[in-house]
Write a protein that binds this DNA or RNA. Structure first.
Length: 188
DNA sequence: CTCTAGATAAACT
DNA sequence: GTTTATCTAGAGT
């Protein structure tokens, strides 16, 4: 089932958990996401468009890639203008051998945004491309999975917003969620 | 488990 | 010119 990218970024972040992500034919099930809003001090879009965040202001479904800490490429899905979903962890399923080779290890292949970027061979030049049937494919599964929710990782501003979502019961999350806080099934 | 170094683009002063 | 950043691997306790 195809995903509607034109929705509130928090709803979008929840919809993406459990979806199947394929980048150039390699990928798996999304285990963990975070939402970044337009009026969100933690978001790259907070101070308006710049050269770096231009893709965040592209149409819904745009790919946004940025370089973190000088060495990690992180993959985001743009929703409405200035809003994006950071994809933080993946269950490696398709093209496993290729991902292992890129990572140089068979553990923690895509458990964390930087590791995921490496496993999927993301590059800065992917920023501005589109999620669709081409290089970047994203398909939701039929049963809406049960979700975990918690505060976002590694940010210093608006750290209290519970905008991190994970697949309940999954192994391979970048970090555990606080007290395994399940999101009520209602609301999704 | 905690701590630290690393590596670089872009924003900031 | 300086600081920060949606992080990770590896070493140390």
């Amino acid at each position: 089932m195809t995903l509607c990218f034109d929705q509130d970024v928090v709803d979008l972040a929840r919809s993406v958990v459990g979806a199947r992500l394929l980048v150039r034919g390699v990928g798996g099930t999304v285990l963990e996401t975070e939402a970044y809003g337009r009026d969100d001090p933690a978001s790259h879009s907070f101070r308006g468009p710049t050269a770096r965040n231009a893709a965040m202001f592209g149409p819904p479904g745009t790919v946004y890639v940025y370089l973190s800490y000088g060495c990690h490429l992180c993959l985001n899905l743009v929703g409405r203008p200035g809003e994006a979903v950071l994809i933080r962890a993946l269950l490696p399923e398709v093209g496993l051998a290729e991902m292992v080779a890129r990572r140089g290890t068979d553990r923690q292949i895509a458990s964390g945004p930087g590791r995921l970027g490496q496993a999927l061979a993301i590059s800065l030049s992917d920023s501005g491309k589109r999620f669709g049937g081409g290089e970047f494919a994203l398909e939701t599964g039929s049963p809406a999975p049960e979700l975990l929710v918690g505060p976002r990782i590694g940010i210093s501003k608006a750290a209290e917003r519970p905008w991190r979502f994970g697949l309940a019961g999954a192994s391979g999350l970048s970090r555990p969620f606080p007290e395994q806080s399940r999101l009520p099934a209602r609301g999704r």
